[in-house]
């Protein structure tokens, strides 16, 4: 359950979002600058809303009324940033283990490494990884921090065609294997269609509508056909 109702101002940009969704994987979809990443950062605690409430699966992370503002480090959210942000001085293995140096279930590490195909990369440093590999390590690092939910910011951006397919395949596998509430930020319809259950369409810092992914797919196909038919 994703429950957002907050207002946030950054310079001249204002974000006002009221969004409730039962979807397991929700995509925030819209053009760049519409407030998708700001929303994700507000959920992660990296941006503080002026007022409102942010809750995931009944856990209140922020509530200005009840004066709740859970610190970033205690929110237990696996964030995968658009710019990856692997720690350059640590090996892939140490990056992966950073969030849970003493994991409750050691076999979880091997499961995630296998799920994301990271076995051969463990000894490498981040500067020895391709774009797709780095993205997979970032996803693994977030998963291994034992999060309550996963926040993915444009997980396929800046990847060439093959790397996109590679990461997408792993994200689909992740969805099959793990029942984890996931919020995905994207401005690419194919990415949304292959991972999300529901899509929140955003525009100028507001929510326009929430659609089930099937309906979103139909509208996208219609939108792509319409200009052609108009000719």
């Amino acid at each position: 359950m994703i429950d957002l109702d907050f207002a946030l101002t950054r310079g001249e940009f204002s974000l006002q979002l009221v969004l409730r969704s039962e979807a397991r994987t929700l995509a925030l979809f819209g053009d760049s600058g519409c407030g998708k990443t700001s929303t994700l950062h507000a959920i992660a605690g990296l941006l503080k809303p002026a007022r409102g409430r942010i809750a995931l699966d009944e856990h209140a992370l922020f509530d200005s009324h009840l004066r709740i503002d859970v610190p970033v480090a205690q929110r237990k959210l696996g964030v995968v940033f658009q710019d990856v942000r692997l720690f350059p001085h640590l090996s892939v293995r140490d990056n992966l283990c950073y969030g849970a140096p003493r994991p409750r279930d050691p076999s979880h590490f091997h499961d995630v490494v296998q799920l994301l195909g990271l076995g051969a990369l463990l000894k490498r440093k981040p500067d020895q990884l391709s774009g797709g590999q780095a993205r997979r390590v970032a996803i693994g690092r977030a998963l291994l921090s034992e999060p309550l939910a996963l926040l993915l910011d444009e997980p396929l951006s800046n990847l060439h065609c093959e790397a996109r397919a590679e990461v997408l395949e792993h994200l689909r596998g992740l969805k099959r294997e793990l029942a984890l509430t996931t919020i995905l930020v994207s401005h690419q319809a194919d990415e949304v269609l292959s991972i999300a259950d529901a899509v929140a369409l955003m525009e100028d810092g507001r929510l326009r509508s929430i659609l089930p992914v099937a309906q979103f797919g139909r509208e996208q196909r219609f939108a792509m056909r319409a200009p052609a038919e108009a000719r």
């Binding site: 605690g45 990296l46 610190p71 480090a73 720690f87 950073y98 969030g99 921090s145």
Partner: peptide, 11 residues
């Protein structure tokens, strides 16, 4: 941003 990433991982 690296410090922020570390914070989101619970550090």
């Amino acid at each position: 941003k690296l410090e922020q990433a570390a914070a989101t991982l619970g550090a």
